[in-house]
Simulated scan of single mutants.
Amino acid sequence: MLVREAMTSPVVTIPPSATVRQAIRVLDEHEVTALPVADGDGRLVGIVSEMDLLLGEFEADPRAFARPLPGTTAPGTPSPRHVGDVMTREVTTARPGADVAEVAELMMRTRIKSVPVLDGPDIVGVLSRRDLVAVLARGDARIRDDVLAALAEFGAGAPFDVSVDDGAVELRGAAGEPARRIAEVLARTVPGVRNVSIRPVGP
């Protein structure tokens, strides 16, 4: 499966000049956990996450503590005011035609929660952990329907029976090797497919 088939698009961006509170409201309104930061030309200049925006936004309530706790924000300390002050400037990105499995592995290895997707200089989407979970949550019946549709669209559906068990697709049919190879590739493009196996059926 390719990144463009799993990413969230169109993408919501924010300028570095926006205030932290404005960015927090955008996160809340769109139910996302990070925002690509774009300059006036729409070019990616950073990414800002929930954690970036929340840092320093809350002060300790004196009613909760008898004395100040280490690490709490001192009263009167100004919070960061603009997205450009708190955003991450070194951003890991992906291309729409990249393999989701490779990007997901990178995200897990580096603990990155969201990856902006660039088509040339244009920000065309965001691939987040939530997007990956949504792909894996697709039910077997829907996956089977999508596999059958993909095979039918390319004229490769008739020779195969399709079954799906927990995202694992099995194709059964008496088609020749070239048709089996094409059917396997088509099935792997369907979101939610974990692996594909082909069981030839004799005459």
Rank of each mutant, 00 (worst) to 15 (best):
M87V: 02
L127H: 11
F154L: 14
A98H: 15
D99I: 10
D131I: 05
L132D: 02
A101D: 07
H82M: 12
K113L: 09
V91C: 03
V126S: 06
H82S: 08
G139S: 07
P78S: 00
F154M: 13
G125E: 00
A98E: 14
V126T: 06
P70C: 01
P80S: 13
R89E: 11
R95F: 03
D146M: 10
G56Y: 09
V100I: 11
L118A: 10
A98Q: 13
V115S: 09
G56H: 03
T93Q: 03
I123K: 05
V100H: 03
R142L: 05
G84L: 00
A94F: 00
P62D: 10
L55M: 08
A152I: 09
T77Q: 11
A141F: 04
P70S: 00
P62Q: 08
R130I: 15
D122S: 12
R130H: 13
L118H: 02
F65L: 14
E90D: 10
A60N: 01
D140C: 01
E57R: 10
E90Q: 13
G120I: 06
A74V: 13
G155K: 10
S128C: 11
G125F: 06
T88D: 07
R144N: 03
E90I: 12
A149D: 14
M87Y: 04
G76M: 01
D85L: 04
V103D: 04
R130D: 15
T92K: 10
V103C: 08
T110S: 13
D119E: 14
P116H: 04
L54N: 09
G76E: 10
V124N: 01
R67V: 15
D61Q: 02
A141G: 07
M108Q: 06
F154W: 04
